[in-house]
Design a protein around this nucleic acid. Structure first.
Lengths: 112, 112
DNA sequence: CGGCATCCGTGCCGATACTG
DNA sequence: CAGTATCGGCACGGATGCCG
């Protein structure tokens, strides 16, 4: 169908190029990416339904979209079993785990 | 015209309430807020035109909108002289300056 | 169980023009 | 000099339904 649009939050060149802050912001800004990353930081590996339960208010659709974005960004890793029914597990990549200090600083600032 | 909408990025209850990360993200996410805060962190007080020059690609409208958001959020302070022509100066509030560690961590992560 | 497809409202943001 | 007004495109995100 020749769809070339980068669906999901990976829109490039949206702001100034040489600004690392925006590189970061564009990857973690998104309605549920913050909470998702926090959950994965706390609980390690999580299944889809587990995330759904831990993030009340986040629709299945939204969860899937944001997870896809995070996977594309190299922040989250996805594992799927070949069984029936399927079991999917999400966890942070090393790069994703390196977000911890960023998240922590944001948490400090936001909780004041 | 009885417009009650909170124009600009201050929409409340947009995500989970008790998540400080989103408190932070919603206040600094926005196309030019990152660069604006960085500029003010580096140069201290800046006039409107100064910011405009330092942020090529950011339209006057966008600059004004994002600055208004930041002022409402208590991150940026605005000073205006009663002279003609007007001189407006923007600087970070103490709360805004406390964003430095957040920004720095984002910068580290984003530049890798 | 873990998604994707579709429809659709709302808000972000650019372009342009006008003001004190 | 430092903004606001207005129009309009397009992406973001909610609701619902289908599928392997």
């Amino acid at each position: 169908m020749l769809k070339l649009n980068l669906e999901g939050g990976l829109q490039m060149a949206k702001a100034i190029e040489n600004c690392p802050i925006d590189q970061t912001l564009q990857q973690i800004a998104g309605k549920w990416k913050g909470p998702i990353i926090m959950t994965l930081l706390e609980h390690g590996q999580c299944r889809f339904n587990e995330l759904e339960k831990r993030l009340p208010g986040c629709s299945r659709r939204m969860l899937a979209l944001q997870l896809n974005d995070l996977v594309k960004a190299g922040i989250v890793a996805k594992e799927v079993t070949a069984t029936v029914p399927v079991r999917t597990s999400y966890s942070l990549t090393p790069r994703g785990r390196q977000l911890r200090p960023v998240i922590e600083e944001m948490q400090k600032w936001g909780s004041v």
